[in-house]
Design a protein around this nucleic acid. Structure first.
Lengths: 170, 170
DNA sequence: ACTTTAAGTCAGCCTTGTTGACATTCCAAT
DNA sequence: ATTGGAATGTCAACAAGGCTGACTTAAAGT
C-alpha cells in the first residue's frame, strides 16, 4: 500500500478515521449500495425491451426538458452512437419527442411525451422510495454527510453538471 | 408522483428535507459519484485486457483469501458463467491461484498470487486516494453519515455480505 | 446405490459501451 | 456565394460483461 495504516496524516488533525480499513469499508459500501440503488428500476425495465441506459436518458430529459443531444451526451458521459441507439428506440416507441431547434436548426431538443413521463414516474417513484426509506432511517444529519461525501468524490466536470441541473430546477 | 412535495411525512417528525427534489438530488449524486468512484480503476485496467468485473473479483478475493467460488458468486451477485470467464482469465494470467479444498475436494479456494496482490494494490490505492481526499475534505461526521445512508440503502442480503466481510477482517 | 452439490464448460443471446467512416444539414466567416 | 466547421444521424464492426440452458465431472451426503 502507498501508506501503512495510520500513516496517512501529513496534516496534524485527528485523522484516525482515515485508516485503509475505513476507506475499504467505504469502497465496499459504495459497491453494494449502488447495486441496491439501481435494482428497482432494473426490475421494472426488464421485460420491456429497455435497460439502465434508457432509464438514464429518460431521467435527464425529464430533469431538463428541451435539452439538446449534445448536452445530454456530456451529462451521461457516453458516445453519441451509444446514446443515439437508446434515443432512437425511445423516440420510435413514442416516449421521447425530438424537436428541431428554432434558433439553431441543427440541434434537436428532447422532451418526454405523456407516455414517457409516465414511465419516468414509475421508475423514479421506485428509486425515491428506497432513498426515502434510507433517509428516514438515518436522519437529516447523516443525509447531509452522505451528500457532502458524494459531491466531494466527483470530478470537477461532473460536479459542474450536477450543480447545473440544480440551477435549472431552482 | 406518488407523493406531492411536502406530503411525505406520515410521521410527526420534521421531514422537510425529504422533498422529492431532495431525493432527486441524492439520486443524481449517486449517479455522478459512482462514475467518479469507478473511473480511476477503469483507467488503470483499460489496455490490460481486464475490466471492472476483474477488479471486483480481485477485490473480494483479496478481502477474503481462500474464499470459494460459490461464496464469491453470492457476494458479486452474478452467474457462475459470468464469474468463471473472469476467473479463468485471472488464473491463466497467474494473478489468482485456485486450490482444491482439503475438507471438501469439490470446492476451489481462491487466493491472489504475488502478481495479483500487486495489481490489487495499484487499483485500490487509486480508489482509496479519491476516497481519502473526499473524506478529508468533508470531515468525520459527514463520513459517518455517508456510511449510514449507504448501509440503509442496501437490501438485507447485501448487508449480510457487507457485514460478513467486516467480521472476517476483524 | 442414488441424489445433491460445487465447479467448470460450451453455445448463444442481449445490452451497452467502444471506434471509424461517412452523409446531411446548417451556421458563420471569408 | 462558397467554404469550413459544428451538430446530428447512420452504418458497420467489435468487446465486455451480463444472462439462460444444457451438460460433465467429481465429491459428498444419505
Amino acid at each position: 500500500m502507498a501508506d501503512g495504516p495510520g500513516t496517512q496524516g501529513h496534516s496534524g488533525e485527528s485523522l484516525l478515521y482515515l485508516t485503509d480499513e475505513q476507506l475499504r469499508q467505504g469502497i465496499e459500501a459504495m459497491f453494494f449500495a449502488y447495486r441496491a440503488f439501481t435494482a428497482d428500476p432494473d426490475r421494472i425495465l426488464q421485460g420491456m425491451h429497455y435497460g439502465r441506459a434508457h432509464h438514464r436518458a429518460i431521467h435527464f430529459i425529464n430533469c431538463a426538458p428541451g435539452t439538446t443531444v449534445n448536452n445530454l451526451l456530456s451529462i451521461l458521459g457516453v458516445t453519441k452512437q451509444s446514446l443515439n441507439r437508446v434515443l432512437r428506440a425511445l423516440i420510435e416507441d413514442g416516449l421521447v419527442e425530438s424537436r428541431v431547434g428554432r434558433a439553431d436548426k441543427r440541434e434537436r431538443h428532447l422532451f418526454l411525451t405523456e407516455e414517457g413521463a409516465e414511465l419516468e414516474r414509475r421508475l423514479s417513484d421506485a428509486q425515491r422510495a428506497r432513498m426515502r426509506a434510507a433517509y428516514r432511517q438515518v436522519g437529516p444529519e447523516a443525509v447531509a454527510g452522505f451528500r457532502k461525501v458524494l459531491e466531494a468524490m466527483m470530478d470537477p466536470e461532473m460536479h459542474r453538471h450536477y450543480s447545473g441541473l440544480r440551477e435549472i430546477r431552482g
